[in-house]
Amino acid sequence: MSAAATQTGLFDCRDAYVATLETLAAADNRIVAVVNDSVGSSKLGKFRETFSERLVNVGIAEQNMVGVGAGLANGGKIPFVSGAACFITARALEQIKTDIGYSDANVKLCGISSGVAYGELGPTHHSIEDIAWLRAMGNITILVPSDPWETEQAIRAAAANEGPVFIRISRMGVPALERPADARFEIGKAEVLRAGGDAAIIANGTMVCRALEAAKALAADGMAARVVNMASMAPLDEAAVLAAAETGAIVTVEEGVVRGGLGGAIAEIVAQHTPCKMKMLGFPGFLPTGSAEFLMAHYGLTADNIAASVRGLLGR
């Protein structure tokens, strides 16, 4: 997929994930997929047909799945451990800590249908605490791609970089973002998708397209809001955060809990180095019943509310 391609319609990032994984697996027999009876929800049916020996289904057993991933890595494989984000992180958190993080294992944890994608199924199936939990461990690279192109880049970067990685892969429809032809994805680097000096909106994942929409609306009212895509949650691009703080106003937007998530991470840096006004948009905790779109609207994760939050900080 060309970075320059402008596509209409919405995309499911799982498709980019599996297409990329199949391409990588064809070229490198170290690539294996590990699943917890999640071949369908991870869209790995074709991978299983093509690379049957390299699809390890451990059944409904997430602790085992993550440990098996660590063992495969010790045996020289590059395992992509794929399962619903809520289970792979919460259920197997101690395995992620001990077998993957602390052991510095070369395992790629793919949290499928992250955030509130499973809206009506409720808080057991939401994965909104995942970033806060994994970020606390310190050595796990955390990637939250925003669209199909970035998902492909994140998967490629994860495979190419030795060490533990967690990647959020959303099933929510997102547009393919417009990027310059020479756009590059780099772990630890933020991407400025729109320039602006009046305020900065820092977002990642499914929230980036909404941030861009908000910035357009603000521009129509004469406010230049920078849009920073923080797909690399960890390591975090501190220079980009400090530059954003220079505008004097930052709004963070994430499909997750603010505590310990993107908002928390940005605030840690800003508070210590360049205090500025901040508004953090995200979820408060266990959520009520509703579709993903309902929940996002209910908690203000919309272009309108992002724009309103910027206006609020600027007093305009």
Partner: peptide, 10 residues
């Protein structure tokens, strides 16, 4: 044991 199983699968 899970890690040993992963190694044995490799």
């Amino acid at each position: 044991v899970p890690v040993a199983v992963g190694l044995a699968i490799a």
